[in-house]
Computed example of a mutant assay.
Amino acid sequence: MKIFKKVSYIKILLVLLAFSTIGLIFKYIPNILAATVSLDEFNKYLMSLGKSGSIIIILFQILQTVIAPIPGEVVQIASGYIYGVPLGLLFTMSGLIIGSAIAFYFTRLIGGNFITNFLKKKNSKWLLDIMESKKFSIILFVIFFVPGLPKDFLIYVAGLTTIKPIKFFSILVISRFPWILASVSIGSNIQNGNYLSTIIISIIAMLSFLVGIIYKNKIINKFLEYKYNR
């Protein structure tokens, strides 16, 4: 009985937190988007904050994970530009993990029906299909790893499944790490004047993104075959 009450209190707190977060997002989203449209402006904004800039980097990365409209690459490149690779990577990965935890546990604890109905209304039934596959963990890794595929909302979808949290977050970190490292490295190389490295990394990232966009439907259809041919 005590455990049931404890879970109920946690759900109530999460609901209040979710509504508070949504309210703040709607209030400040124009300013947030305006700050991240230009990399130069975002860099100036962060540098004007001094030591608290690192906290803002983490918060922006959390928001980027929870709500897709914020361009994650701007946040990650700015993090590398101002703080270098080690700290920039630490801040962005921390934000990614915290934001993913919010999305994952929101679905798992209180938002399952909401996410399911949202997927049906948005004609994203393929996400509901792949989560029923026995190869869901592999599919999750591929989607997280390949640029150009829908990533952030898949975190909410993962919360609908029985995947263990430790397994989910391991897949998330391992698959997202290389490309976040690339973005942070671009920012650091720009700051240090290593333009050749910046160009090489940018070309590789751009080509990978284009491949993901061009073959997105084929990859998704391949995933759907896993469900029906398992």
Rank of each mutant, 00 (worst) to 15 (best):
G148P: 12
Q191A: 13
L181Y: 08
L172P: 05
I199S: 15
V184P: 08
T162Y: 14
I155K: 00
V173H: 05
G187L: 04
L154I: 11
N189C: 09
S188R: 05
S170R: 03
A158E: 05
L160Q: 01
F144V: 08
K167R: 06
V142T: 14
G193M: 08
F144L: 15
I180W: 00
F144C: 10
G193Y: 06
I166W: 14
S188F: 09
F145M: 15
A158L: 05
K167L: 08
K167E: 07
F169E: 01
P165I: 04
I166L: 14
F169R: 00
V173W: 11
P147F: 10
F153M: 14
D152E: 11
I180Q: 01
P165H: 06
T162D: 15
N192K: 12
R176C: 02
L181H: 04
T161P: 13
G148M: 10
I186P: 07
K151R: 09
P165A: 04
T162Q: 15
T161Y: 11
I180V: 03
T161F: 11
R176F: 04
N189G: 09
K167F: 11
S197G: 15
F141E: 10
S197T: 15
F144H: 07
A158D: 07
I155S: 01
F168S: 00
F169A: 00
L181W: 07
S185N: 04
G193E: 07
Y195M: 11
F168N: 02
I180G: 00
V184A: 06
V173I: 14
L172F: 06
F144M: 15
K164W: 03
Y156W: 08
F141W: 14
I155E: 03
T162L: 15
L149E: 08
I166N: 13
V142W: 13
